[in-house]
Amino acid sequence: MALTVAIAFHGFNQSPKYGSVRPISAEQRPAALNQKDIEKIAHLARLEVSGQECAAYAADLSRILGLIEQMNAIATDHVAPMAQPETTPLRFRDDAVTQNGDPERLLALAPASAHGLYLVPRVIE
């Protein structure tokens, strides 16, 4: 049992898409994150987090997860998910060129640009 928990919990890189790792039941779910978990999450979110901060975030996030896991007190087996207030159906736009902004003005906002391109450190594919 303990092994299952550990694998599932540290299984970030094992699955390219969500849903393929079996959801963990309430009793199994760990309520604490360690520094390694924070490093993985921070990487996914592209946030630099120093070693010191890592410990603080691990403690904070663990407390927040403790709050979040109160959700398990309620059974929701047959409840339809609600992603947003269901008030208005999706509307369409006509296929017309209505706005092309002001390209030079937009480009002027960039921290680094040249020849009309946004510049970033070289990407290796």
Binding site: A8, Q14, S15, Y18, G19, S20, P23, I24, R29, I68
Partner: peptide, 8 residues
Amino acid sequence: SAGYYDAY
């Protein structure tokens, strides 16, 4: 993230 979507 992968594996936690359903539960959270």
